[in-house]
């Protein structure tokens, strides 16, 4: 198989924001991936910066383990400001 590798494309849409995943494409190398990403994902000035990352280099959490993976946060409501009693008269807290 001589298929070109798959690349994930991340686009910074505006100055100041973080890059966001836009989609993916096949390309033989990083430079071509970047050029193709420009043509595929930013034809209407959607971005000011592009990142491409080989899909194979991304380690992702598995969807089936979503429950146990995020459970530690689910049981900790005290990480949220609404957990605390602050009287209405007290401002700026």
């Amino acid at each position: 198989m001589n298929e070109w590798p798959l690349w994930e494309v991340f686009v910074r849409s505006q100055h100041g924001l973080a890059h966001q995943h836009a989609g993916s494409l096949h390309a033989p190398d990083a430079e071509t991936a970047l050029n193709n990403a420009r043509d595929v994902y930013t034809r209407r000035n959607e971005g000011v910066s592009i990142w491409v990352v080989k899909s194979a280099d991304i380690t992702a959490s598995s969807p089936s383990e979503k429950g146990p993976l995020f459970e530690p946060a689910a049981s900790k409501p005290y990480r949220h400001p609404t957990f605390y009693e602050v009287p209405d008269e007290v401002k700026h807290l």
Binding site: Y78, P81, Y84, E85, V86, L93
Partner: peptide, 13 residues
Amino acid sequence: ESFHQRQGYEILL
């Protein structure tokens, strides 16, 4: 941070 300040105030309250 916002919970940090509120939990502190709650302790003092």
